[in-house]
Each structure stands twice: as structure tokens, then as C-alpha cells.
Amino acid sequence: MKKVIELINIKRNFQVGDEVVHALRGISFTICEGEFVTIMGTSGSGKSTLLNQLGCLDTPTSGEYLLDGVPVRRMKRRERAVLRNRKIGFVFQNYNLLPKTTAVENVELPLMYNSSVSARERTQRAIRALERVGLGSRLYHKSNQMSGGQMQRVAIARALVNDPAVILADEATGNLDTRTSFEILVLFQELHAEGRTIIFVTHNPEIAQYSSRNIVLRDGQIKEDKLNPHILSAADALAALPKPTDED
């Protein structure tokens, strides 16, 4: 299988006052194409720092990170921006949509910074991505006219639109109620089934049951890294939930 992400002994230190904080103390793992990996850990375990590394928002103090075969550590800020644009799709906990902007324009955003995509192609791809996440009927709704679940779907469409090597989700269901969380998980599982590589960072152990592999961090080191032999279906879980009582 093709290696999408390869971490080789990644360390990341921060200077806080006179002290050096070791946020990551030598992390190594490889993620292949088509994996759905959850990364778990309590707060302070180095989850966020690792996510920043994976998302090329930050560079390691030592070690090497290969994203789709490209070494990231010595890249300049500008080069990393272009790399993010082409290879990574982010999904954030609080959606981070542009305010008062339509769904299509929000999804178009990553392609706006890719000058090899024409305006016509950009819109077509945005519409296709929105249709993929089930928002084909809400293309021109503005972000402030949508529910949390819809906003997160727009955010996922935005992460899909540049056809990234990996989708990085940071607590993507953290702000949603149980039902909507499962709906989003169903979407992620569908994307996984289509062969997408997904990394889902969360502190919710339940979610690990729906992924193909689970990595647990503790104090900047990997505590556990194992495949999930019994992947649960989020669609089944959703069906098992009690029906919403308020019919509307």
C-alpha cells in the first residue's frame, strides 16, 4: 500500500520561559492510503501538537515527516502553505466557515488559492463536493442560515474539494449532538469506504470503534497503536438511536 504519512522519530520542543517543554518525545508511525485512523489522548498528551505537525502548520524540532513522499521539516512557510493547499483537507471542531458566505463560496475557498484551477472548474468541483456530502439542495445558503450539522458538512465538502491525500479532522463531532455526530461519522465512514485517508483526532473513545486503526498518545509518546478488527457501522448506530420526538 502507498504510504501517505510517514513520521520518523518526530520531536517537538517548546521554549516556555526558561523551561523546555517536550510536547512530542519521538513519535514514529506510518499511515497508508485508505486508512481511517483515530488519534486519541487526554489534553496535554500532545494531540494538538501532533495534529499541527501532520497538517504542516508546524515543523518538528527533530525527526522527519514525509507527506505523500514529500519531506516537510525543512520546508519554508510559503512552501508548506502550498503543500497544505494541495495535499490536506482540514475539518475543525467549530467548522470555521466564512461568515455570511454561501456554501459554494466556502467550499471554493481552497481552490481560490490554487491558480491552476479555472473559475468554472472551481465552481463545478465545489458543487460536486457539496452534493457528495448531501447538501446539493443548499448550495447557496449562507453559513449563518445553516444548522451545526450542515455547517460541518460544508466544512467536510471544503476538505474534499482539493482531492487531498489526507483529511485531517480535529474533534469534528465535538460541537454536535449525538444524532448529528453519528450522521457525520456515517459520512466519514462512507468516505473511508471510497478509499479516502482520514485522520480523526478526538478525546472521545467511542469514535475509535468506527475507525480502522486507533493511536493513543500519552505524554508525547505513543501508548498504543492497533488496528480495529471489528469496525462498527455508524449507520447502524444511527438507526438504533431513538427517533427524534419533535416531528417537524
Binding site: G55, L57, R77, R78, A81, V82, R84, N85, R86, F90, F92, N96, L98, L109, P110, Y113, N114, R158, N162
Partner: peptide
């Protein structure tokens, strides 16, 4: 957000 989706 713009930076994370690739704005330089």
C-alpha cells in the same frame, strides 16, 4: 482558516 487551506 485561509492559511490552513493554503493561503500564503
Amino acid at each position: 482558516l485561509r492559511m490552513s487551506v493554503g493561503a500564503r
